[in-house]
């Protein structure tokens, strides 16, 4: 390696890292600045005054933020419950039974992700309006679940597939009925994978905007909808603060997921 090359390589690397960091943290920094900006107008590069006035407004009883945070979390929890209720039996069946259309079934759960969102949601909104689900928590949960199921089913099926058959056979052999075996051996062993899928579904639901907008508005107000309204109305501070609120569970859970999703489970995803 030439002398120039020896200096250039670390330099290039440092530049690339800096660029990468800027792409990730740049918008976030802007968000943080806006969250604490009292006054910030053109042509200033930085806010003119900092303070917590908008934080007070967001968390005041009239601010709606806490109420929509509550709604968001409640919807996310219900979505997790619905998704797991489907994903546990479906994932087990896909992992253990010799289903003929296994690949096709796995692919079917992917459809809601593959098709463009907007036309689907417009249709769903229309149908839900007719059957009285529009503007209800149930309606929003169903829309979120259709989205979350692909993650839940795929990860759950991988979690069950990574459990060695002989572990279940040993339990049956020791006198456990099929259900007891599932309850005492299969489920506890799949628990980390199922936990990871629950967290993904929870986060997906917490951030979901489009579906909620078409099905929930105006009766169901989630945090992303509040953020959207605020930024449309030019309230960048309110929008930034709600955005930061949404970041907290995402980051917290991402750290947890990493612990639950082991390599042996990941290796089975989509198999």
């Amino acid at each position: 390696m030439t002398l120039a090359g020896r200096f250039a390589t670390p330099l290039v690397r440092a530049l690339l890292i800096a660029l990468f960091a800027f792409a990730i943290f740049g918008p976030l920094a802007n968000l943080v600045l806006w969250a604490f900006a009292e006054k910030w107008y053109f042509p200033s590069k930085l806010p003119l005054e900092y303070g917590f006035t908008f934080w007070q407004r967001v968390f005041s009883p009239r601010g709606n933020a806490l109420a929509s945070l509550g709604t968001s979390v409640w919807i996310a929890l219900l979505t997790v419950a619905v998704s797991l209720a489907v994903a546990i039996p479906a994932g087990y069946a896909l992992a253990r039974l010799k289903l003929r259309w296994r690949g096709l079934i796995l692919l079917a759960f992917l459809l809601p992700q593959a098709v463009p969102n907007l036309p689907v949601y417009v249709n769903i909104a229309q149908v839900f309006y007719r059957i009285g689900l529009a503007g209800t928590i149930t309606g929003v949960v169903l829309v979120h679940a259709s989205h979350g199921l692909v993650l839940a089913v795929w990860i759950a099926s991988a979690a069950f597939a990574s459990i060695d058959d002989s572990l279940e056979e040993a339990a049956r052999n020791m006198g456990a009925s099929a259900w007891t075996c599932f309850r005492t051996v299969t489920l506890p062993l799949a628990a980390p994978g199922l936990m990871a899928s629950a967290i993904f579904v929870f986060l997906e639901s917490l951030d979901e905007f489009t579906g909620t907008y078409f099905v929930g508005v105006p009766d169901v107000m989630t945090l992303p909808l509040l953020m959207f309204n605020a930024s449309m109305g030019g309230n960048y501070q309110i929008a930034s603060i709600t955005a930061l609120l949404l970041l907290v569970p995402s980051i917290a859970f991402m750290l947890v997921v990493e612990r639950f999703l082991k390599a042996d489970v990941l290796a089975m995803v989509g198999r």
Binding site: S166, E169, A170, N173, M174, P188
Partner: peptide, 29 residues
Amino acid sequence: PPEKRGTAMMFQSYALWPHMSVAGNIGYG
């Protein structure tokens, strides 16, 4: 069904349940 046969099998892989203690494994049956 397997659970009603009164046989005890030892597996080649041992098939011990990793989420249980030694006593938990032995006492399961």
